[in-house]
Nucleic acid binder design. Structure first.
Lengths: 226, 226
DNA sequence: TCTAAAAGGGTGAGCAGTTGCTCATAGCTA
DNA sequence: TAGCTATGAGCAACTGCTCACCCTTTTAGA
């Protein structure tokens, strides 16, 4: 379905060099964005010539995509560890939130790359990447929401897929809010200058929100439903 | 604090032309992004020479910023109408969701521009724009959340600012999910191919989620809090 | 074992296309 | 004459990418 994004020469290259090239790419792309990053500069910073760079990759975009895959698999590895456990839903949510907070600093380059593809438009293979990237958390979230429903931990009349979507939307936004400049600013507009330092407050309130966002009489909701 | 983003000549120009220039800019910037849009092309499509374009604007970036302001004020106008009413919180939420759904198509260019600045990094005046753009909804949401709290419609021990933040995060993501290609794909990964057509389902489930996202025993939450 | 050819790793000057922006010029009005 | 609107050829800088070239290693035939 999707061709490889590097030439054979790159696969044959020394693993240490491969790592250097990808990490340098991640540095530059996450700092400047795809368009503003300069592949000649990436080559220089990685200590190879552009000639060789183009022996490794067909295009600048292919290099970007490989960097992206690296970033995504790292992000998945981190949340994967959390998702393996077998906790109740809010305990799991708490672990996820704390992981996002703790991983914000060390993984900021990866999150920024993720944020970068978020503005990708259809011309390219949005579908392929969205599937690849999002389906991991999709599987995980719908899985444990289904179980939570069976256990009576969440309301029985909810749609697990939509609830998973809302849940992930909150976590994704939170991740960006600890990492990307604009989202960070927005975060402090809403929650005050100190919010980025007060991890406990965020954990506490988001868990409250998830537990029962807006308590509202069942009748009012019924009224809305018809 | 922030200089003007057009030269006097633009303010003197014919209002119809001003409109054409800004709308053409919004077209191009929302379709291609800031970097890939070509100011020479914008000038041509707007029916003026680039020479004149640069009599109107100092730089390409200034043109972009004026387009952005136009887009934002349009988005604010739309949600402003909804926020003026004096409904209970879930009724208000429902109106907002429906507005997002109905305005998705006609306002897609504005939403895409908004999404575009979301990846802006600090070098530029992120702070200024985040303040300008986000504080409108911030004021509105904290306002009616405070009232909802006073009325006993939401739990009394919540932090209104954080709750407003979570609420807005859900709505912002939803807005992108009806408009921006990557978010759209993600939406269907989570909720199925038909979700973009089933507005009622989204309204219903999001209201359920807001009403009581995860019902969970108070004791478990207490246990988490210490 | 020696040799020649083929294949691959590696280089970087520079091509070609793009694009933000300038400026010399012209017309029009007061 | 002065000051405005308006033009668009084209400058200058940038950058994705090529290609002629060098060096080393592997292969193959005598």
């Amino acid at each position: 379905m999707e061709r490889k994004h590097c030439k054979p020469a790159f696969e044959r290259a020394d693993p240490a060099r491969r790592e250097t090239v990808l990490q340098t790419g991640i540095d530059e792309f996450s700092a400047l964005g795809f368009e503003n990053a300069n592949i000649n500069v990436i080559a220089k910073k990685a200590g190879i010539s552009i000639g060789l760079m183009y022996k490794y990759f067909e295009t600048k975009e292919d290099l970007f995509i490989l960097c992206l895959e690296e970033a995504i698999s790292e992000l998945h590895r981190v949340i994967g560890e959390v998702l393996e456990s077998d906790d109740k839903i809010l305990v799991r949510a708490e672990k996820l939130i704390r992981t996002i907070q703790e991983a914000a600093e060390p993984n900021s380059r990866y999150v920024k790359l993720y944020n970068e593809i978020t503005k990708m438009s259809d011309e390219k293979n949005v579908r392929y990447y969205a599937d690849r990237i999002e389906s991991v958390s999709y599987e995980a979230y719908t899985g444990f929401l289904a179980r939570a429903k069976a256990d009576g931990d969440i309301r029985p009349d909810c749609d697990e897929r939509l609830f998973a979507f809302f849940f992930d939307s909150l976590l994704m936004t939170l991740q960006f809010s600890y990492t990307c400049d604009y989202y960070k600013e927005r975060f402090t507009v809403y929650c005050g200058e100190d919010i980025l330092e007060d991890n406990e407050k965020v954990v506490r309130e988001l868990l409250k929100f998830l537990e029962s966002a807006f308590t509202f009489s069942r009748e009012d909701v019924k009224k809305l439903e018809n």
